[in-house]
Nucleic acid binder design. Structure first.
Lengths: 180, 180
DNA sequence: GCTCACATGTAATCCGTTACATGATTCT
DNA sequence: AGAATCATGTAACGGATTACATGTGAGC
């Protein structure tokens, strides 16, 4: 069976303690979402696939009368995750940004509109940087006390990169303003 | 008819002078590919769609016995492109990076393997930064003499951001090394 | 003569998202 | 009592990629 990044994402989240499909999705929503989006409709079929491949073990774990399944990594699952983490194959970074696409073609705009576009992109980068710093980084840093440090590392990378882009666009904006 | 980012990408490329489907794809391959990937199989149906919507005009332009179609923007096409450029809707940035996903879960690795992963990511960022600087920026800068400046702006943004990420990962690597 | 670039398209497949469908528990 | 959260799934749809299929022109 072929494992895709989403498979490893689920394996990884289970390893970090997310037990139900719902919990996996919730955990992904405030962490991995930003560099590997995943919808809830992907989670349940994938869990079934991983279980039938022997990488996850599924146990009934009802909460009152509400059904719930609890997943844990099998040894094979642990090993598959480790192998993927140590490997380096995989598609190169995929990046889809409608804003940057607009910027690429922005020569078709009047200077005032170019400036407005640049400004919007800058504000967006600033918003991502600050919301990451305020919401994601604290949560990830709390985890770091339990020995799980990488989520915080990734959160800071995201925040810092967006802050860099913000400053870069600020300079570009200033140059364009001067220059026209 | 609903226009998607790929539609505007094609419109924009035609506006910049790419006339055939083949030429559009070739131009995209060395510029917009990095923030909006598009396959050749998307181009031809989309050209037909845009033409039937009256945004592109298609002319027969055979080169010897080899058939070729030449597309130009209609006034409606010009306007549709401009409207999109001035608008700000659109999905937020989508970013898919298997490498960063690995880093997120890297607490499952031994320090030596963590270091190796960090190193691979850093080298990848460095490679993107330098290849962009050497191949994409010069081509885009040549265009800038004709008054088309934004492609060069975007190319530099990409190169500089990747250089930033490289330095960031270098520091992270040094910290981890010290620290273990 | 051969290979590579130019050129246009279609078909099958894969994959992911949106929407649908249902129900229990907890908090206000 | 009502709303929000927890919880599990399926079905339909849409969009993008891979592979297929074909043919000319230019350069070596």
């Amino acid at each position: 069976m072929k494992l895709r990044p989403a498979s490893y994402l689920i394996l990884g989240m289970v390893r970090l303690g997310a037990r139900s499909g719902y919990a996996i999705k919730a955990a992904a929503d405030q962490s991995t979402q930003f560099f590997w989006p995943m919808s809830l409709a992907q989670v349940y079929p994938e869990l079934a696939r991983l279980q039938s491949a022997g990488l996850l073990r599924r146990e009934e774990d009802p909460h009152g009368g509400r059904e719930r399944h609890s997943y844990v990594l099998t040894e094979a699952g642990e090993e598959a995750l480790g192998e993927w983490l140590r490997s380096s194959e995989g598609e190169p970074t995929q990046f889809r940004d409608e804003g940057v696409l607009r910027l690429f073609f922005a020569d078709a705009l009047m200077p005032a509109d170019q400036l407005a576009l640049l400004h919007r992109l800058r504000e967006r980068a600033a918003a991502v940087a600050s919301s990451t710093m305020e919401e994601i980084v604290p949560a990830a840093t709390a985890l770091a006390d339990t020995g799980i440090r990488c989520p915080a590392l990734v959160a800071r990378l995201r925040a810092d990169t967006n802050a860099f882009v913000e400053r870069w666009l600020e300079r570009a904006e200033a140059e364009l303003r001067e220059w026209s």
